[in-house]
Design a protein around this nucleic acid. Structure first.
Lengths: 222, 222
DNA sequence: CGACGCTTTGACCCGTTTCAACAATGGTGG
DNA sequence: CCACCATTGTTGAAACGGGTCAAAGCGTCG
C-alpha cells in the first residue's frame, strides 16, 4: 500500500487502463469522466474522502472512463493481490466492498435521471444537495457550507450543460437566495426550497438512516 | 426458486421495496426506471434474457427504482437466503456475481454520457447499437435485425427526449437509410455509419473480446 | 363498427448553445 | 513591483434543438 499527493487536474487513471491496484481517496476531490471523440466531456461522479473510485477494477479488466483530480488530493493505492488475499480470509469484508461498489450504479442512475429529466436549475440544485449530503457523512461540511473547488466548466460537464449556461443557472439560484457559490465555497441558503425544487430524494445514496439527517419535504407525502 | 410469466407493462419491483429475492430474466424485455414526483419518467436500462436486474438487492436495503416488464416475459426468482448459502460455499460464484453487478454502473454511466453529451440522433443510434450488441451476445439477433417492442414514448423516456421528438429522430434515421424500425422490429441498415454517428465504443459493456465481434471504426484510430 | 393505443404532423414557444467580447483574478518572469 | 499571460467568470445577441399542445392518421381487437 502506497500513498501519494496529487496536484490539481492530474490524471490518475486513463480509459483503457488495466489496473493492478485500487485507489482510496484520503482527502481532496477527484472526478470520473468520459471524453468523447469530439472532445466533449461528461463528468460521471465526484469522489470525496473515503471513496474507492476504481474498486471495480478488481473484477473488470479495463477502465471505461478517466479518473482525474480536481483539486490537490491525497490518495492511497492498494494492490489487487493484497486486497484479494484479504478478501479470501475475510468474507465479511468481501460483502462490505461488494456493497461499496454497488452504490456506484444508483448514483449514476440518479445522475442519468437528473440530466435526462430535469431542467438546468433543478440539475444544479440536485448536484449541490448530493455533494452536501455526501460530504456531511464524512464530516466535511460546516453546517450548510462546504468547499467544492470546481470551475463552471466542470460544473457544466457534470450536469450536461454548457459553461455559459451553467453560469447563468448559478446566477439564477443566487438571485433566488437559494445558495451562494464563491471561489468554490458553496453555501446552501435554503435547503428545503432547494430540495423541493430539485425533486431531491436521498434514497439513491443508500445512507444509513441515522447518517442522512435529512428528510426532504418534497417526497415525504408519497 | 420460482418461475413466473408476466404480461406487458407489469410492475415487478417498486421503488422502496425491500426484496428478499432476486429475479433473473429468462425471456422477454424489462426496464428499470425512475419516476419523478412530477410524473416524468427516465428509463435507466433495458433488461434482457440472462440479466439479473435486482442483484443489488442482495446488499442494498431498498430498491431505488422501478422494475417493469415491457413485453410479456418469463422471469425466475431466487431467494436471497438460498443465494447467500450458495455464495458461502462457492467463493468463485461470489466473484462472478459481483462482476455481474459491477457492469450495471458502466452502462448507467454510458447512458449518462449519452443523455448529457450527445444530441437526439446520436442518442438513438447509440441505444440501438447497445441493444443489438447485448442481444447478439445472448443469441437473440438475426444478423442485423432484432425485436425491441417498445413504444416511442418509452424510447423517449430512455434517451431523455419527448415522445414527439423521439418520433422525429426515428424518421430522420430512417430517411438516412441507417435503420428501419417497424412495430418493434429493428433493422440496422448501416452499422458502421450508425456507430460512427453515435461515437459508439463498446468497451463499457465489458464483453469478452470474442463475444463482441464488433470493432467500431470510429474509435479504432485513437 | 367503435374504441383505444400508438404514430405522425404542424405550429409555436422556450431552454440551451454558440460565438464573441470583456472583466476579474492570479501567477510568472523580468 | 509591474507588465504580461493564462484561467475563469460574466454578458449580450442570434440561432437552434427540442418541448408542448392539439389534432389527425392508423391498426388492432372486442
Amino acid at each position: 500500500m502506497t500513498e501519494r499527493e496529487t496536484q490539481a487536474r492530474e490524471n490518475i487513471i486513463r480509459q483503457g487502463d488495466r489496473s493492478t491496484q485500487c485507489c482510496l481517496v484520503l482527502d481532496g476531490l477527484l472526478a470520473r469522466s468520459k471524453v468523447l471523440i469530439d472532445g466533449t466531456r461528461q463528468i460521471l461522479s465526484f469522489e470525496i474522502a473515503g471513496d474507492i473510485p476504481d474498486l471495480q477494477s478488481l473484477h473488470l479488466e479495463a477502465m471505461d472512463h478517466e479518473l482525474e483530480s480536481i483539486s490537490p488530493s491525497r490518495i492511497a493505492f492498494i494492490q489487487h493481490t493484497v486486497l484479494r488475499d484479504l478478501l479470501r480470509f475475510h468474507p465479511r469484508l468481501s460483502d462490505i466492498l461488494w456493497r461499496e461498489t454497488l452504490i456506484d450504479a444508483p448514483i449514476s442512475r440518479e445522475w442519468l435521471t437528473n440530466v435526462g429529466r430535469r431542467d438546468g436549475v433543478q440539475r444544479l440544485a440536485h448536484l449541490v444537495i448530493e455533494i452536501w449530503l455526501r460530504l456531511k457523512v464524512v464530516g466535511k461540511v460546516n453546517a450548510m457550507s462546504f468547499h467544492l473547488p470546481i470551475t463552471q466548466e466542470q460544473l457544466g460537464d457534470a450536469i450536461g450543460l454548457s459553461t455559459v449556461h451553467a453560469n447563468r443557472i448559478l446566477q439564477s439560484l443566487r438571485e433566488k437566495q437559494l445558495l451562494s457559490w464563491d471561489h468554490g465555497q458553496v453555501d446552501i441558503l435554503n435547503l428545503d426550497a432547494l430540495a423541493e425544487l430539485a425533486l431531491f430524494d436521498p434514497a439513491y445514496l443508500h445512507l444509513k438512516p441515522a447518517l442522512s439527517g435529512f428528510a426532504p419535504k418534497a417526497t415525504s407525502r408519497t
